[in-house]
Measured scan of single mutants.
Amino acid sequence: MSIQHFRVALIPFFAAFCLPVFAHPETLVKVKDAEDQLGARVGYIELDLNSGKILESFRPEERFPMMSTFKVLLCGAVLSRVDAGQEQLGRRIHYSQNDLVEYSPVTEKHLTDGMTVRELCSAAITMSDNTAANLLLTTIGGPKELTAFLHNMGDHVTRLDRWEPELNEAIPNDERDTTMPAAMATTLRKLLTGELLTLASRQQLIDWMEADKVAGPLLRSALPAGWFIADKSGAGERGSRGIIAALGPDGKPSRIVVIYTTGSQATMDERNRQIAEIGASLIKHW
């Protein structure tokens, strides 16, 4: 067993022997301040990774656009098919120029040779490549099948209805392509620590998230040296922004954090800054 596999296998073990965790309302004060600064709703939840206990939450059962955070769930569904012998990570998928959609920095470079399922998941999570996500959605049967996968996990809230990039439209009061912070946090925890996926697939999923290259201005910008984070960000229309993450000190994750916002007129930089400040408060009061 590799060191990384050992780390993920012992996530519940280490967490069980940690000192009790206590909620700190100071972080919620910052979440509410972010709402004021952005002029928009902000949803927040913080779960203990081992027990699933909610440590703090704000608007945990209000719907927010998922945006690209759905790509972690998508690759979880792909990995479940791999575990069941219905898919192979090494299978190569070929596609054409007509398949390319807006923001496809990886797939646009491989029109000639195609990409493997493993490479597509890596591109979808680490670079948020939209064509990679659409190609992977095709392998599982489309958005409705991802929703069905989530329902089978016990998540009857999260739903995907459309493809990239239309799913980022974020129309107010439109339930399409949305989740709730509580539902997303619980589902992410199941994917990373539950028995739904094999140990190898859980490790692969967290490795992809740990290698995320496009979430630097968010929670990662607030992390002290030595902290662990595996995350996936999302951005959408109407001032929408979000991030889902597993993080913790001492090089291992111990909490799940989900943050979503929508309806702001603020710039992307300002949305990023507010999420980073929430992260800084979380870490300060850990």
Rank of each mutant, 00 (worst) to 15 (best):
C18P: 05
D155M: 01
I93F: 06
S122Q: 14
S122W: 11
S96F: 11
S122V: 12
P249K: 13
T179A: 03
S281F: 15
L10H: 06
G85Y: 08
H24L: 10
R220S: 04
L79Y: 02
E277D: 12
A170H: 09
T178H: 02
A230D: 00
I140G: 04
V42A: 06
L218V: 04
H5G: 07
P60L: 10
I275C: 05
M115D: 01
L196M: 13
A23Y: 04
P181Q: 00
V82Q: 06
L160V: 14
M115C: 07
A170R: 08
L218P: 03
T261Y: 06
S264W: 04
D155R: 00
V21K: 06
V72C: 07
A235N: 05
A124D: 01
A16E: 05
S254I: 10
K232M: 00
W208E: 03
G39T: 09
V21L: 07
H156V: 11
P12T: 12
F14T: 11
V258F: 02
E270Y: 08
A266I: 06
A9N: 09
S281T: 14
A15S: 15
G226S: 11
C75Y: 00
P65I: 03
E169C: 11
E210I: 15
D269T: 12
R63W: 04
L191Q: 04
G226N: 12
I45M: 13
L10K: 05
P224C: 05
R241S: 06
H5R: 08
T186N: 13
S128A: 00
E175K: 12
P12S: 12
V101T: 15
A124C: 08
D212S: 07
K30T: 15
I244T: 07
P249L: 06
L197M: 09
D129M: 00
E61A: 12
T27L: 08
V78L: 07
W208Q: 03
R189Q: 15
P172V: 12
T178S: 12
A246F: 12
P224K: 07
A215T: 06
A200R: 13
P224H: 06
L191S: 04
L120K: 00
G194T: 15
G239V: 01
L136F: 00
R220Y: 02
R7Q: 14
M180I: 12
G43D: 00
T179W: 00
V42I: 13
L135I: 14
L135R: 04
K213Q: 14
L191D: 00
D113Y: 11
G39P: 05
F13W: 11
L47Q: 07
T126E: 12
Q265C: 10
L47D: 01
V257Y: 05
D48H: 07
G242S: 07
L28E: 06
R241E: 03
H94M: 14
G226Y: 07
S122A: 12
H110P: 03
A148E: 14
G39L: 11
A15L: 14
D48L: 04
E210K: 11
T69S: 06
A40I: 04
P60F: 10
G39Y: 10
T187W: 04
S2T: 13
E56H: 08
Q37W: 13
L146D: 00
G90H: 12
T267K: 12
D212Q: 07
K53Q: 12
E169V: 11
T178I: 04
I54W: 08
S57P: 02
P12N: 12
P217K: 14
G52W: 05
T107S: 11
Q86H: 13
C18W: 12
A77S: 10
D177P: 01
P249H: 07
D177V: 01
D99M: 12
L79R: 01
F149S: 07
Q265Y: 12
S221V: 11
D155F: 01
L205T: 03
I171L: 15
R159W: 06
A148V: 13
L205G: 00
W163R: 11
S51K: 09
M180K: 14
S221E: 10
W286V: 02
G85A: 10
S51N: 12
V258A: 09
L150A: 09
N134T: 05
Q203M: 14
D231R: 03
T69G: 02
K252C: 12
G141A: 06
M180R: 12
E62F: 07
L73V: 12
V82K: 06
G239L: 01
H94L: 13
G141I: 05
G154F: 04
V8S: 15
E108N: 10
P249Q: 09
K71I: 00
E277C: 08
P143T: 07
V78C: 05
S68L: 00
R91V: 05
V31S: 03
A183D: 07
D99E: 14
A124Q: 02
L120F: 04
T138I: 11
R162M: 06
L49A: 09
Y44D: 01
H156D: 14
D174A: 05
I278E: 00
R41T: 09
R273Q: 10
G90N: 13
G279N: 03
A280L: 11
M115I: 07
E175H: 14
E119A: 10
S264G: 10
L55N: 08
R59Y: 04
L137C: 06
I278F: 04
M1N: 01
E102M: 12
F70M: 14
D33T: 15
I125H: 03
G76M: 05
C75L: 05
S233C: 02
R220E: 03
P105M: 06
A183Y: 10
S51P: 03
I140R: 02
E87G: 05
K71H: 00
G141Q: 07
Q4Y: 13
R92N: 09
A15G: 15
D129P: 00
H110S: 08
T107K: 01
